[in-house]
Design a protein around this nucleic acid. Sequence first.
DNA 1: ATCACTTTTGCAATCGATTGCAAAGAAGGG
DNA 2: CCCTTCTTTGCAATCGATTGCAAAAGTGAT
Lengths: 323, 323
Amino acid sequence: MDDIARLVGVSKATVSRALQDSPLINDETKKRIVEVARSNNYVVNRSAQNLRRRRTDTIGLVIDFPALPEHRLSDPFHFELLGNIANALAARQQDVLWCSPQSAHAGGFENLLANKGVDGIIFIGQSGRHDELRALAKAGVPFVVWGAHREDANYCVVGSDNLLGGRLVAQRFRKLKRKRPMFLGPKGHVEIEQRCRGFEQEWGSAIEQLQVSDLSFISSRNAVLAWLDSGKPLPDGLFAASDTMAMGALAAFRERNIEVPKACSVCGYDDSPSALHHSPALTTVRQDTRLAGSVLVERLVQIIQGMPAASVLLPTDLIDRAT
Amino acid sequence: MDDIARLVGVSKATVSRALQDSPLINDETKKRIVEVARSNNYVVNRSAQNLRRRRTDTIGLVIDFPALPEHRLSDPFHFELLGNIANALAARQQDVLWCSPQSAHAGGFENLLANKGVDGIIFIGQSGRHDELRALAKAGVPFVVWGAHREDANYCVVGSDNLLGGRLVAQRFRKLKRKRPMFLGPKGHVEIEQRCRGFEQEWGSAIEQLQVSDLSFISSRNAVLAWLDSGKPLPDGLFAASDTMAMGALAAFRERNIEVPKACSVCGYDDSPSALHHSPALTTVRQDTRLAGSVLVERLVQIIQGMPAASVLLPTDLIDRAT
DNA sequence: ATCACTTTTGCAATCGATTGCAAAGAAGGG
DNA sequence: CCCTTCTTTGCAATCGATTGCAAAAGTGAT
């Protein structure tokens, strides 16, 4: 910047202002400076700028992506969500710093901001971290969470209406005259438990649950196979916690020649692209990842600017397809 | 840092060195400093550190993720690759700054480094940007590319052996006594063209090509349907440029009651998770995204450190499944 | 020509670390 | 006890911008 200043014959301060398009600088001068800067292909040094401004225009995205086969990223839903968040941020000229929770967590999330130099954080999923997040919020760290709403959240969470999603499925099953519904999903994910709860609320009673160990296709398939082979009574409606799991269940049904949807209706969750492409096309509960991404970003920006931001419950729809 | 220094009763320089675990500092002192720093939960300011060190320990990842339905990200392969790159970088304590090409490209990629403050760049796919990349390399910007190898690349590209992949498929089709193979894929992607070329090399002659407009499931399905309905002769072996496209083709075949693999063998590319889960399980050419991620990162680190790094051709395997 | 404003520009401090070099302190040898 | 050598520590410059405040230049009215 000093060089540019010398070249144009003004001070560094003037160059800095000109490049920021400050109204303080004469248009004539400004034009000259910008021109010289460009032709010498000069760009401001981000590190210096960040230091001085005490702001990085970068937000951190914390999402699990362990090496495990069942990691979250491998679920198309999170993938879509991620892409949409990145888009929403790009539209605001913000960059995305992708932090693995492992690395991010070194020294606790409260240090993430300073550590990584980000202005705010988006957490994908709060499972198992709720208390930490509460503390973070208390410490004044700007962040938003994609996940389930809870009474005791003192932070902004954006999530789709899992209770409603579950209810919609129950309504559909009732309309289809299903008598023995079953829920397929793992324990320990608040979002997922809410889906089940929503179903039960609408259904009017507790329903059978088939537990799986993780979110993967294969675990679901295996769990369903085990159930079928155990001789336990067949459900006539299966509500899976995600599309991936629904597809695992469908694979198991196929292997045991159980007709879908005749013998058993199957409903997934997420409306991931593969749900549409699957054969038979999967009936599912849609979550709008596009909207989710933009709402998350919008809220986070608000919070960074010191404004309060309320949590948001995004609507869900039942997408009726072949299963 | 000044505060910590005062608290411990040493100079700022000593604190800085202690926190970097410099051998210059007495162990005793070091321990004391680290302790005080932690208990006051101090963390170094990244921006300042970056400025002074002239290095950010952050690399930029440039990948298209437009809002279009056919965007790359929506292909599970890129998704997997991304996750694995992120993992490999996390293992080296490096962060990932995710740049949309749109934002990254403002002012040309040559400015990306300074602009975003990254030490190096990983480009996913070089299609249509080859010349720009050549210029970048000439300008001395440290980067690696995931993509196709070309004679005229003056930069490091890591990619799997698309020619070999194509060859493997041709060998298989020959063993299956197929007579009329067809290639399904879009124009304009060097990687994809190489797959086709590899096939033809092994096959010994040019083969029929069904062009699709993009990488999506739906375009492939539609293209195949159109072909089938046009009354043109049916191929007895279909080699699709990706698993997603193969699955589109399978959907079309199913709709027209064409038996797979009896009437027509189908082979995909990538070995994405869905290929295994698909019914019928998809025969495909496997690309090892895990390996890819770590090799990309390793090369980039080398380049950043000023060492030369040769391009790498990763092996591919044919995974024989039901189609 | 003077004065009161307004518009432009520049000075210099500041953001928060890192690091070359010099100096202080400790240890060992004669 | 002095001198050399090695280990620790501190001083102060530096990385490359941004910005409050003061000064200079320009404008117009009297």
